[in-house]
């Protein structure tokens, strides 16, 4: 866990967001310390994806403050650039660029955003593809890979920017069951390397194993938050108890 004098990696302070008349985030406050791993749980429509997408401003919040690594997200484009360089994101649907090879997917942002020389970027990318255990696929196109492989490429692609923070938006929800483990293994390894992570997922095993803190959201609010043992064994609110009973029924 973090030392007390370190600035938080992510700070959300009474954040509100509306889609038209629908209030999707209600006074959400959340602090993520450096190197902390936070798992966000909640039923669908609870605002967890919207919350995580506000952190790199894929969605704009309308009220409250979001400060990422010391930079506040406002309308300012330079602040946005700074934040997006430091925050990597992995999507539910991978979102690899289908017209580029795996290697090109990985080196694109380092070359064009970080202005890294191509040779250096390729070396970095190959190193990370090794780390996610698919260096032999580097010359292929995303459409030729399985879902699990594509998601591991997506993780490597985000890591190529050497981010300080990684956001995961339901990274295993679009995968066939037999491929979930290979992606979770990579994420566990990443967590153990000390990366700051915010992860929206339904994988309870993953949450128990790596999360420092589990945050439960429902109807746009943070309802409960605490260490995984407390959240899973001693839920306080009815909403969390209902949610846990619903998702554990299948396990």
């Amino acid at each position: 866990m973090s030392e007390t004098n370190e600035a938080p990696a992510i700070l959300l302070d009474r954040v509100n967001k509306w889609y038209g008349q629908i209030h999707v985030l209600r006074d959400v406050s959340l602090t993520v310390a450096q190197r902390e791993r936070v798992v966000v749980l909640g039923p669908s429509g609870s605002g967890k994806s919207t919350m995580i997408r506000c952190i790199n401003r894929l969605e704009e919040h309308q009220q409250g403050r979001i400060v990422v690594d010391g930079t506040e997200l406002t309308g300012d484009l330079r602040a946005l650039d700074t934040v997006r360089r430091e925050v990597g994101m992995v999507f539910q649907s991978f979102n690899l660029f289908p017209h580029l090879t795996i290697l090109e997917n990985c080196v694109l942002a380092p070359i064009h955003v970080r202005k890294m020389p191509r040779a250096e970027a390729e070396e970095l990318a190959m190193g990370l593809l090794k780390r996610v255990r698919i260096p032999e696929q580097a010359k292929k196109y995303p459409g030729q890979l399985s879902g699990g492989q594509q998601q591991r490429v997506a993780i490597a692609r985000a890591l190529c920017m050497r981010p300080k923070i990684m956001l995961f938006d339901e990274p295993t929800s679009a995968l066939d069951p037999e491929m979930i483990k290979e992606v979770l293994d990579v994420m566990v390894e990443l967590a153990e390397s000390g990366m700051t992570m915010v992860c929206v997922t339904h994988e309870m095993g993953f949450a128990r194993r790596v999360a420092d803190r589990v945050v439960f959201m429902d109807r746009g609010e943070v309802v409960e938050s605490g260490p995984p043992a407390t959240i899973f064994e001693k839920p306080e609110t009815e909403r969390l108890k209902t949610f846990l009973s619903q998702i554990l029924r299948g396990h």
């Binding site: 894929l58 997006r84 994101m89 660029f97 942002a109 985000a158």
Partner: peptide, 29 residues
């Protein structure tokens, strides 16, 4: 798909980089 724009945004690509490298090559073909 919207995800292509979002992935480019999340990687920190600017508007013209996003269009030139990601969006137009796919849209035009």
């Amino acid at each position: 798909p919207k995800g292509q724009y979002e992935a480019a945004d999340a990687l920190g690509l600017g508007y013209w980089q996003k269009m030139r490298l990601i969006v137009l090559p796919q849209a035009l073909r």
